[in-house]
Amino acid sequence: MRHAPTMLVLAFLFLLPVLVLILQAGAPGWRYPELWPELGLDGVRFLATRPGPFLTALTGSLGYSLATVVLTLSMTILPAKALAYSSFRGKTLLEGLLLLPALVPAMTFSMGLHFIFIKIGLADTAPGVILVLSMISYPYMLRALTTGYTLMGREYEICARNLGASKWRVFLEVELPQLLPAMAAGGSVVFLVAFSEYFLVFLIGGGSVASFTGYLFPLITSSNRGLGALVTLVFLAVPIALFIVLELGLYRYHRKRRMR
């Protein structure tokens, strides 16, 4: 097996941590210096008897992350087209500036924005959290959509317009189906960025917006490592499940269209 070393490295880097998490989740009392834990289901039982805060946190995170995906999509779908198809003076500079929110430390603008949000009543609210998360994540959507438009080219649009389709019809029936993969790619990244952000949700949400990271944080810094590991595993499982649903959905959609 000449590829065995690569596989070993991959397993060591990415599968071992999951294994450790599973063992830790099954053994809250796993302590130094035991190497093999005594497994039990205390953590699962704990979550099952008091699922309230856990579920609130999970639905809260899912809610604002999906809302962020929708918002970034609606913010970037037209600009991506403009950036892909037109050239104007200062375009490179503008593109650079539009990438900045994902590059510079999020703290730099969010701390100032927090003050504004307090003044206009958006601090400690879910819309405020969604707005600030959209700011740090839209560049990924913009990049994906711009590439999508560039790869698609204008010919289909011009052709459909020539045949008399309205702008809306062209968008819905010509562009949208071809852009779906780009949207899915951009949306996945935006979702992950929003779902795993701790600091901004804590700053802008101020504790009144329930989040999964906020739920996880005290668990892992306290001594309740078993529960922390269990929650981390759910953290891993939820996005994976969503991505599988997304892949299957796209696959089915394309198959249906092809059959039509």
Partner: peptide, 23 residues
């Protein structure tokens, strides 16, 4: 075409930065 992005960009990112600088 760029407006849907430029407006929130200025209202959130630039405004946030400006306030950080001002403070």
């Amino acid at each position: 075409g760029l407006a849907p992005l430029l407006l929130p960009y200025c209202a959130l990112f630039c405004a946030g930065l400006t306030l950080t600088l001002a403070q």
